[in-house]
Amino acid sequence: MRLTYYRDLILVLTQKEMQVRYKNTFLGYLWSVAQPLALAFVFFVAFKVVMRINVPNYTLFLITALFPWQWFSNSVTSANGVFIGNASIIKKINFPRYSLVIANICQDSIHFFLAIPALLIFMLYYRIWPHWSWFYGIPVLFVIQFITTFGLSLIVASLNLFFRDLERLTSIFVMLLFYCTPIIYPADMIPEKFRCFLNFNPVAPLMVNWRNLFLEGHMDVFYMLISLLYGLGFMSLGVFIYKKLSYRFAEVL
């Protein structure tokens, strides 16, 4: 009974978010594919055409990590507005506020899933076939990415109510993280002596695993464990900060 309720709450909030942002579903679908593809095109021109990076099937290589990254970065960046944008609800009704954060992530994860067919088309074009391991690999990486994003989003969404300039800091941080993560370049292009720093990047192991899963059908277990640890760490921190601050949300909005 309670579970049905929470499911409905998340569902309705996610739906609401879609309706508010895209007005109609077709436009929403187009957006979910067009935005990462447009970005991929820009990187393709910059790194393949101009700088001639030596990576086979570069477009495919790029989007296998760029699509999950887009989900992560869109969610974390928009987390800044999650509570502020729903002030009229938060100030008047007592409901679990974190459900807004979950709905925000669900919304972006739907775009991610909708973009997978586009990825499949590229794979078929390069004659790379989907692998059976996707059936367990995608759910596992999905859960890890979900809790990581949830933790970071909770931190950002809660703190932004008290420090309204956090939004700018978040976008700078996310941009830095993007270039520190092997998305537009392969991890083995990083000089040997710096490569161990990759493990300090909380999303790099995850993105590398997405790419390995999509391209080769296997995941690196060590990377998986690290990213899971990061995920759990961020989630604990997020829940801690949220618990400390959530009863004040209605006061500062």
């Binding site: 609401k16 309706q19 508010v20 729903n86 009229s88 609800i89 100030k91 008047k92 009704i93």
Partner: peptide, 10 residues
């Protein structure tokens, strides 16, 4: 109060 719990765009 007015409009509480609603979203204006919906």
């Amino acid at each position: 109060e007015l409009g509480g719990g609603f979203h204006l765009e919906l």
